[in-house]
Design a protein around this nucleic acid. Structure first.
Lengths: 155, 155
DNA sequence: TATTGTTATACTCTATAACTATA
DNA sequence: TATAGTTATAGAGTATAACAATA
């Protein structure tokens, strides 16, 4: 009884609050301002995915990484391309597909944003022992895996 | 350099992915189905807040707890009241305010939902050592606090 | 004059359906 | 016939502005 009750009184409320803090909290606004970018959040997420990938990504691959459907990516890609932050190039091997790549300006934007993220979180967690950060990262990774696996009905 | 780099390669991506898993993942759908409820998520969140509070809450208090603006709460309250899950009673002490209370049916719905949450997370985390759950809960609590404090510019 | 809540409106995020072009 | 991506449309989530009632 103790173990399961902890979920309702401990973990679950924290996850709900973290979700609210992350999605509606002012953190993103602060970071955006610090980085001097004016993009909607999913658009910024696309840039980060491209930046942290090895090279250009296909549209479908971006959608999978973001856990969203294709048209959502296409829509933001249209805006990003108009602003000159990404380029879409037809894949030579499969002409149905497109390879999406950051432009130089897109790369700069992603760099500025990531630097602001690093500063922001670094300040917020400045008095955290290194061990706690590592533990949290590890536990979150496992949580994500286990939630995903369970949702997929594989376990 | 090591400490701050961990944020960009470790913590930050995990938080982003957890946010996606929590907000768009199928977990909520599974739990909803298991509990046999058909409410939009913010409406369910209102019920849970009322259930876990000591007694009836004012509209503004619900909004604060959910980290949203007042009109958003009002809108969902209208739906919940129509379905007979909550009641709004004018506060005798301050007639501008309303006290929102769960009806018997609202209470049952919240109970069913929370039981399904407990089952769902309990299964997903069934092989977690008790210590890991406690650690994650503690670290998440601190993370939320520190992000909130930093966003408020207090530190 | 300030505060509680509501109504009206609009913006952001995301999904589904229908389509085009390749394969 | 199946797959990659796009366009069109719609729904969920949330915010701001204007307002009512009360303090």
């Amino acid at each position: 009884m103790t173990g399961t009750d902890d979920i309702l009184t401990g973990l679950f409320p924290r996850l709900a609050e973290l979700g609210a803090t992350l999605s509606r909290g002012r953190s993103y606004e602060h970071v955006k301002t610090a980085a001097g970018v004016s993009l909607e959040r999913p658009a910024m997420t696309i840039l980060i995915n491209l930046k942290t990938a090895d090279g250009p990504l296909r549209v479908g691959e971006i959608a999978t990484r973001m856990q969203v459907e294709g048209p959502h990516v296409t829509r933001h890609l249209n805006g990003l391309e108009q602003r000159g932050l990404v380029e879409r190039v037809v894949d030579a091997d499969d002409r149905r597909a497109r390879r999406v790549a950051l432009t130089a300006e897109g790369e700069e934007t992603a760099d500025r944003y990531l630097a602001a993220v690093r500063d922001w979180f670094g300040e917020a967690l400045s008095d955290w022992p290194e061990g706690d950060r590592r533990d949290l990262t590890r536990l979150l990774g496992r949580l994500i895996d286990d939630l995903g696996t369970h949702a997929a009905g594989e376990a």
